[in-house]
């Protein structure tokens, strides 16, 4: 059975990855032998300088999902390279690093620093975090997306992925712009901007006022967006949005995704990524599918 997949020149032994911001402290909590079985890991987004994140409350449970407004709390790229990357690399799983600059120049500065680090499989540009008080996101403009992807591609030593926002009129046009600028893959979707109001206090339930919706609640929306993007681009799609089970992941693969990322499910079931991987293999065995490429985009119309 062949389940390996490629992004640019990078090869991954299987299509299951852990989505950004949903996994940490592996050495303390996880059986690393098991984590190693996954295709890749995308650690939490890193910015140029340390960010303390948004005021609490930062999360709230919603029907079949959650809102978050963490605000990219992170130690900054220098500390991340020095303190976090070594322990992440010890796991022995390919790393896709998620980065966010508040300007194009900051993105470039981060990539220049990452160019000095060995054994990174790819860089994911977070163009779509909804919780940072930016008036518009890079991923809400074809022009801005293309400009940024082009300038990162010029210098990056590793494949570049553009992470797109669902908070747009037509996500496939943004994906097309990223592809045109040289992106090696697109990942979608980031969270949907959303809010919950506490009717007792008549205030937002989150310290940041709005947040990003994730979990199974958004899955049908995201599956459709992946389908739409797959109709327009040829580069691989990393799909995420409420994947809890192998069946969820297979929907994305059939819609056109080469990779699936398990995110919010990690908060409920830390074994979810492994369950998804095992389930995909079981589905392929049962349906006598020898190569996962024979499933990608094979939804019938």
């Amino acid at each position: 059975m062949k389940i390996s997949v490629k992004i640019g020149k990078a090869v991954f032994k299987n299509p299951v990855t852990i989505a950004s911001g949903t996994f940490a402290h592996a050495e303390k909590y996880y059986n690393l032998e098991e984590v190693k079985k996954l295709g890749s890991l995308i650690p939490k987004t890193v910015t140029l300088r340390a960010q303390e994140g948004n005021p609490p409350p930062r999360i709230i449970e919603t029907p079949s999902g959650m809102l978050n407004a963490i605000g990219i709390e992170n130690p900054g790229i220098d500390t991340f390279i020095e303190n976090k990357i070594p322990s992440l690399q010890k796991i022995g799983i390919p790393l896709i690093l998620s980065i966010l600059g508040h300007t194009d120049k900051e993105f470039i500065q981060i990539v220049e620093k990452l160019n000095q680090v060995k054994n990174i499989s790819a860089i994911e540009l977070n163009l779509s975090c909804p919780n940072l008080k930016h008036k518009t996101l890079v991923a809400q403009s074809e022009k801005a997306t293309a400009r940024l992807v082009r300038s990162v591609k010029k210098i990056s030593k590793v494949p570049v992925i553009a992470k797109l926002s669902p908070n747009v009129t037509d996500i496939s046009s943004i994906a097309k712009a990223a592809e045109g600028a040289g992106a090696d893959a697109v990942s979608l979707i980031n969270t949907l901007t959303a809010m919950v109001i506490n009717t007792k206090t008549r205030k937002s339930a989150l310290g940041n006022f709005t947040g990003g919706l994730s979990g199974p609640a958004i899955r049908p929306v995201a599956v459709h967006m992946v389908y739409r993007v797959a109709q327009r681009v040829k580069i691989p799609i990393i799909a995420m949005g409420g994947i809890m089970t192998a069946d969820d992941a297979l929907q994305y693969i059939l819609a056109g995704a080469s990779f699936v990322a398990v995110g919010t499910a990690n908060f409920v079931n830390p074994r979810a990524p492994l369950d998804v991987l095992e389930g995909i293999k079981a589905y392929m065995r049962k349906n006598k599918i020898k190569d996962i490429r024979h499933l990608i985009g094979k939804v019938e119309s």
Binding site: G53, I59, I70
Partner: peptide
């Protein structure tokens, strides 16, 4: 959410 220091929600 996670209870494992991953989501930074609490």
């Amino acid at each position: 959410a996670c209870a494992l220091g991953a989501c930074l929600g609490c």
